[in-house]
């Protein structure tokens, strides 16, 4: 896999140290990782294990203390704030735990918000269709349920056709049934646009729908599991 031309993102020796006064917190201690195009990766691990820091650095929201992150043949660690913004803008989709939709925009407009600044976006209505929300496109976030809001958020994240889709606890605020709908949406768009998808979750049940599961502990990847057969979201529950 190291030289696989399909590798989209690669981290090597990734280290992150936060200084909090005299105390040094090692959030990441030399993480090596690579993911290929279209791969669906679930990241598990207890709070403070470094999984969010890992995702933030890969997503261009935070910088590493040491090590390298490469997106295709670009070295993210060499980019400044402007370069990272451009990277997120062109290549990365994010889904947040609390959806973070803009309350003053309708579902369709929330998606259009991103397509307006993207290079090769989908039609916003198609993106909403992909998550099954065409009928709700003119509703404001306040008129949508939590699960619907999260699906709008997914549509917003993938409408730019990103190579990478990062989701931090996308089902964390949802009940099981709604969570399953959201996971279905995620796997569907993963399949449809071929974005490499990294999903952080506390929910071990979700690993069964992934190609690969990473388990983080104490700033390291302590276990990697490859699923030979992926389950469909409706086959899991919690």
């Amino acid at each position: 896999m190291p030289d696989d031309p399909d590798i989209v993102i690669r981290a090597s020796g990734l280290t992150k140290v936060y200084r909090n006064g005299p105390v040094e917190v090692h959030a990441l201690r030399g993480v090596d990782f690579a993911a290929v195009r279209g791969e669906f990766v679930v990241i598990l691990g207890p709070s403070g294990s470094g999984k969010s820091t890992f995702l933030n650095i890969l997503g261009g929201l935070d910088s590493a203390s040491a090590g390298r992150v490469q997106f295709r043949d670009h070295d993210l660690t060499e980019l400044d704030e402007r370069g990272l913004t451009q990277y997120r803008r062109d290549h990365v989709g994010f889904v947040f735990q609390f959806y973070n939709l803009v309350p003053s925009l309708t579902a369709l407009e929330n998606v259009a918000l991103v397509t307006e600044i993207a290079r090769n976006p989908m039609n916003p209505a198609d993106a909403l269709d992909l998550v099954g929300l065409s009928a709700r496109q003119d509703h404001f976030p306040a008129q949508l349920s939590g699960g619907e809001q999260q699906r709008v958020a997914i549509a917003r994240a993938i409408a730019k056709r990103p190579e990478l889709l990062f989701c931090d606890e996308p089902t964390g605020a949802l009940d099981s049934t709604t969570g399953v709908r959201v996971l279905e949406a995620l796997t569907e768009v993963n399949r449809a646009i071929g974005a490499t998808t990294l999903v952080i979750t506390h929910n071990a049940a979700i690993r069964e729908i992934a190609d690969r599961t990473l388990r983080f502990a104490d700033g390291r990847i302590v276990e990697t599991t490859v699923n030979t057969t992926r389950k469909r979201p409706d086959q899991v529950s919690w």
């Binding site: 997503g59 929201l61 704030e81 402007r82 913004t85 451009q86 990277y87 997120r88 803008r89 062109d90 990365v92 994010f94 947040f96 973070n100 803009v102 309350p103 918000l113 991103v114 600044i117 917003r156 994240a157 730019k160």
Partner: peptide, 16 residues
């Protein structure tokens, strides 16, 4: 503030 920070994550520039 929260919406705007979300927009930054989505790739909006500081100026935008």
């Amino acid at each position: 503030g929260r919406e705007l920070a979300s927009l930054r994550v989505l790739g909006f520039t500081q100026a935008e």
